[in-house]
Design a protein around this nucleic acid. Structure first.
Lengths: 121, 121
DNA sequence: GAGTATCTACGACAAATCGTAGTAGGAGAC
DNA sequence: GTCTCCTACTACGATTTGTCGTAGATACTC
């Protein structure tokens, strides 16, 4: 029952909604019958890992995501790419395959983004 | 010292070179002072997880990767995309960012691939 | 055919990660 | 002062991964 980091991701998803959150607020938002301390522990561990930041507000902490969801996503992609050892060709193909599979229209949007990026440069 | 699956990946990298491998061959290729049984165990576990296949050759097994490196890569990308919950827009941007960072020229190749794909359809 | 080498099957153990929560103690609210 | 809430600390069990050891079967060599 432990190895997919599901709860950590769920908590991060809450924080990614933006703003600062107390443990209790996160607990309410996660909407699962979990103990207060469970969420507190998860937030604490995410803080140790540098994935969330926090500041003391009176007696309690306020937490927020250290990186936006998009940044986290980009980091994941980067890690994948690093693992693929640069050689991006198969990576590119794999990516297009997956994009197409999930959402065929996304290919058009991707092309638009590419175009925009080219202009910008 | 356990959680990054580094050895499993190293073993997979060996298998991805293609062909069938005995435990001993993999051990030699990995080129680390590890026990024979260490590699045997890793291969066994990868087999249990369906990541490698094997066939008995006399007394010993021959192993090979169940999926090519490219396929595994595509699966990873797919998993990432699923986690990003479809919303492919930030995913697309993140991807382009990373591609550009790793290899600016790859953007051109990506565009070519996109074009080709459009033709094909 | 006995001795040696080689494999596999099984089991183990330690470290790390993660889900989950209890307890103790402090600080504020009334 | 008592009640409530929060943090800090600790803990435990499951799972994953790295790393081997042992035992038993098979094969190769004289």
């Amino acid at each position: 029952m432990a190895r997919d980091a599901a709860l950590e991701r769920r908590v991060l998803d809450v924080l990614w909604q933006g703003g600062e959150w107390s443990v209790r607020q996160v607990l309410a938002e996660v909407d699962e019958p979990l103990a207060y301390t469970t969420i507190a522990t998860v937030l604490d561990r995410l803080h140790e890992k540098g994935q969330v930041q926090r500041v003391k507000q009176g007696v309690s902490w306020q937490y927020w995501a250290a990186r936006s969801k998009d940044e986290a996503l980009a980091a994941e992609v980067g890690r994948l790419m690093a693992r693929a050892e640069a050689a991006p060709e198969p990576m590119l193909v794999a990516f297009l395959d997956q994009v197409e599979r999930v959402d065929p229209d996304a290919l058009d949007r991707l092309e638009a983004l590419l175009e925009a990026r080219r202009q910008r440069k």
